[in-house]
């Protein structure tokens, strides 16, 4: 029997989950990441979230993007640590992918950070962003767990 993707997601999210998943995302501290005026499309901005041990990457994809914020809905951010074994990923502007140099996991920042190829078994955790007063703030973590941690909080 083939489980439909929709059903499988229900299972993943609710029924069979090993841990509680009450909130849509883990609300964290509000941390300023960048000023809108300083962002250049496809030039990554590094920051840490939710604390120093967890590097993250902010990207202006230059066009409307899944879960993007900002005037063009083009700004997204992800945990920079590969979900496989934690090597720091880097943005490849030509492929428009986040690439892990260790065993070449390829993540797509335009599609919620899903892993397209390589050993990683999940998306990169997405850093939830808010725009206020011309600045971009990180406010929480959506999806999964940041590498190296047992909790995103």
């Amino acid at each position: 029997m083939v489980v439909s993707r929709r059903k499988a997601l229900v299972y993943l999210g609710v029924a069979g989950a090993p841990v509680a998943m009450r909130k849509v995302f883990a609300q964290g501290e509000r941390v300023k990441v960048a000023d809108l005026a300083g962002l250049v499309p496809l030039q990554p901005v590094s920051f840490s979230y939710p604390d120093e041990g967890s590097p993250a990457i902010l990207l202006d994809m230059g066009r409307p993007t899944y879960m993007g914020v900002g005037p063009k809905k083009s700004i997204v951010a992800y945990s920079a640590l590969c979900q496989h074994l934690g090597c720091p990923t880097a943005f490849d502007p030509k492929e428009k992918l986040l690439v892990c140099p260790c065993h070449i996991s390829l993540y797509d920042p335009a599609r919620g950070g899903i892993c397209l190829e390589g050993p990683a078994i999940s998306r990169l955790p997405r850093i939830v962003l808010e725009v206020a007063g011309g600045s971009v703030y990180a406010v929480g973590v959506a999806y999964g767990l940041i590498y190296g941690r047992a909790s995103n909080a």
């Binding site: 841990v19 998943m21 883990a26 919620g112 909790s151 909080a153």
Partner: peptide, 22 residues
Amino acid sequence: LTWEEAKAFSLDAEKSLEALEL
């Protein structure tokens, strides 16, 4: 992604974990 899959590709799959028991 097929069109159907792209539609399914939405927020409802995006849940954060509270804490993982080790």
